[in-house]
Amino acid sequence: MSLSRRELLKMGLLAVCGTVIPLSALEILKPEAAASLIRPYSEHKRWAFVVDTTKCVGCGMCVKACKLENEIPFNIDVQRTWVERYVQLKNGDVLIDSPHGARNGYIKNDPQGKEINEAEVAKGIFVPKLCNQCEKPSCVQVCPVGATYKTSDGVVLVDKGWCIGCGYCINNCPYLARFFSPVTNTADKCTFCYHRITKGLNTACMDACAFGARKIGMLNDPNSEVAKIISTERVSVLKPEYGNEPQVFYIGLDAIVR
């Protein structure tokens, strides 16, 4: 049999397509998957968080509680939640720090390790941070193997047995909420204490906060305080320009907050 160019091309194309498209890729062709391209919003209830920075005193108890609750080694500098300090001086300089994620709290006026005279300070603000459990999490989008995912109730989790440790999700999180776990050596992140909230408990950080600066609850749930605050008060989110639709809402943010 002689081989015409056309036949060769045809076979070649078939072979290439066969290699190119593993069966899983066909998932994208299912009608419901196609629909999710057009309507990516979930309408049902999902978890959300409110941080009231006007109440935060920078004690760092939340960081401590989180590390112990979630078994993130205390003395290693990675954390699922942390507290940042922004101090603006009267000369206009802005000093920002978060030593060890503030797991030992702020006990001195020493932003970036420099002792500052209280008289020089114009204003200051403590900003607790945690995973924003985005509605459109870029970290999940870029995971090449499906080792991180959003649950139906809106929490982004990591499947540590499936993670290959490429770090693509870590580099794609605008909030730096992700890190490599020193325990499992895989990507790790705040889960909104998924093991607690699904049992009707509060998150560890919220429990540890004596000042009510942190609140967790369900969006679209009329009984939830979080839903009430978000729908009636003036809240803002961090870095909305990335289009991730973060679900941690802040009260009392400032222009100097990053």
Partner: peptide, 29 residues
């Protein structure tokens, strides 16, 4: 990779919304 032994997952469960996932395909082709 910090989990080299899981790297086979790239072929097993590729997530093509990720730019990296296509690597095996592009590479093998």
């Amino acid at each position: 990779l910090t989990q080299v032994f899981n790297s086979i997952n790239m072929i097993l469960t590729p997530h093509f919304y990720s730019a990296i996932a296509a690597f095996t395909v592009v590479y093998l082709t």
